[in-house]
Design a protein around this nucleic acid. Structure first.
Lengths: 346, 346
DNA sequence: TGGCACAAAGTTAACGGTAACGCAACGATC
DNA sequence: GATCGTTGCGTTACCGTTAACTTTGTGCCA
């Protein structure tokens, strides 16, 4: 039950409607696409027939015949732990208002998958593609360029842009993280968390921090990273390792807030005072970061703004606007986990 | 630069390849779909030409002509705060292995959007549709049934199923939440958080809890809910209200962990001892729930399992398997925020 | 050496729409 | 009353690909 036999499965087409109403196929098509060119009364009968037969237009046919598609391909590197979920969320709802449908792909930081997924998405002849990052395998760049459609790169802006980008300057984020810790009197920094080979954004942040540390005449940042997914358990495990191997460290920059949650847990279990003995700083401003104790200092990317600006950029480019790269602001949210001085209140 | 003029934009087709290689269009098509029917050497030349021209097949045409589509429509009610992001994540990667492409829609708990989005997704003639919930507007049910494709309802199982469902029994979750609190000695329960008119799952949990409370001879559950999105700030606000209006309450069931985070914050600010004076219980097992203090008792849905089983159900149904409803287990994770007795350790 | 099976390619006709064009009926215009 | 623009609809020709046939070429056997 529920599924009709394949033989009898008879999805209505424009022709079914046309036959039922007694007009030509094209008139029915017009009733949909240019309603004011069809008599009111006839239009009413056509709409009634469509409603009655539960007609759903076939966009495969429409897209093939017509000139424009209304798919927007969205390629993210992860969805888990909500890293890009809220960007997709706002982007999708903004596009929906223009009747654009999101087709989603998740590369999970795998460049081979990225090539495959981009190819797959392009095969649907989307009106535009939005993709996380500005660093892609050469084949991806080639395919996207050859497609001739607007390409919006999100989240990052540093580097070679294909067409249009909406993102943050990650090097400056890393610099701000380090600078803040140094200003609070921390001197031996560590970077902890997942640092995937293909997560160029994290690498840029780390390099930005490194530069600030060097400029301050402090010793190099200790790195304890893996290719795995970030999680509290990972943060806890790496932090324990760190305490053992590098007892001199007095501040930890985590690649994401969820990793920082684990770091806090590990430090508390080891009896370290935060922020007195050791500071912890995250990235991403997870919804729980203001609720853990001590509350977590972190960087808040304006995800909604990125989603919204991406939608706007897509629409602008579809309507022949010029390519444009927009740098989106972020905010260092200073909370308890790094605040040694009493200078600020929040 | 980047985008070719519309006039010159000349995306390669099978015909371009055919002409370049000097064979018929169909031979090129065969080289893709049934490679072993084409001479090895010719196949090599065809592949080389495709590579060179950056050929990307047009699935609009393929889908229109061929018999099967490889889109799977996925309809969720939210993505924000990662509620369903990890389901989509696992679902997508499992489908990818079968070369099925996810088309995503997010209704944001708006039934009108749901109708519109389902219609939009069906217009791409997907091979199957996976959708959150078993309670849909009548028109959605009608459209999905009329489509004649496999429909997998996720997350919930209680009620009328269209075709196949993979989800949890939310009434029993609510009952377990209340039963646990009662066993810990709490007697005046409250339900706090966003309770959207169209979030039937939350309503089922609340009813399940209500039934358990009544069975224990305790007074009715106090409700303090809104239609807004759940967030820590919302939880904090509602909890302050609750403390004022219903000082007798000694246990709070939050509709989501992020709301519970805010509740914890509010209670700590008011100087209440948790779990001594008042208990807090969440839903969803947010990644931070084990990291807040006190750590949060919550219900852990097996999201990955739901995603994986949904993918399996889709494949089974596409290959003419029978419709089947699967009830997925969940787990009550007892942590500090409700544990008054010393009986358990974790 | 003729006949036949099979492999490898070409031909043709859909698939369900949309766009361009054609044409009748009608009122407005001079 | 002939001319013309408009309105409202029908005809026809694609869009790029696949499936079902048809044709051609090749090796094998009697």
């Amino acid at each position: 039950m529920g599924i009709a036999d394949k033989e009898t499965r008879n999805v209505p087409t424009l022709a079914s409607i046309a036959e039922r109403v007694g007009v030509s196929v094209n008139t029915v098509s017009r009733a949909l696409r240019a309603p004011n060119t069809v008599r009111v009364e006839l239009r009413r009968r056509i709409n009634a027939a469509m409603e009655e037969l539960n007609y759903v237009p076939n966009r495969l046919a429409g897209g093939l015949s017509g000139t424009r598609s209304d798919i927007v391909g969205v390629v993210v590197t992860s969805l888990y732990y909500s890293e890009f979920a809220s960007i997709v969320d706002t982007l999708q709802s903004a596009l929906l208002e223009q009747d654009l449908q999101v087709m989603l792909a998740n590369t999970r930081y795998n460049p081979d998958q990225e090539v495959r997924l981009v190819r797959s998405i392009l095969s649907w002849r989307p009106a535009a593609v939005a993709i996380i990052g500005v660093d892609h395998p050469p084949k991806v760049v080639e395919l996207l360029k050859a497609s001739g459609i607007p390409i919006i790169e999100m989240w990052d802006v540093g580097g070679e842009v294909i067409d249009t980008a909406v993102g943050m300057d990650h090097a400056s984020i890393g610099a701000a993280q380090a600078t803040h810790l140094i200003a609070e009197g921390y001197a031996r920094l560590a970077f902890v968390g997942s640092l995937r080979e293909n997560d160029r954004r994290a690498q840029k942040r780390l390099r930005g921090a490194e530069t600030a540390v060097v400029a301050a005449g402090l010793p190099e940042i200790v790195r304890l990273t893996t290719q795995q997914n970030g999680s509290p358990d990972l943060g806890e495990r790496l932090t324990h390792e760190l305490l053992e191997q590098h007892p001199e460290v007095d501040a930890i920059v985590c690649n994401s807030d969820v990793v920082a949650f684990g770091a806090l847990r590990a430090l508390k279990r080891s009896g370290r005072r935060i922020p007195g003995e050791i500071g912890v700083l995250g990235f991403g401003d997870n919804e729980a970061s203001s609720c853990v104790s001590p509350s977590l200092t972190t960087v808040r990317p304006d995800r909604e703004r990125i989603g919204k600006l991406t939608a706007e950029a897509i629409l602008a480019r579809i309507n022949d606007g010029a390519p444009k790269t927009t740098v989106v602001d972020w905010e260092l949210i200073i909370r308890e986990s790094t605040r040694r001085r009493d200078s600020q209140n929040q």
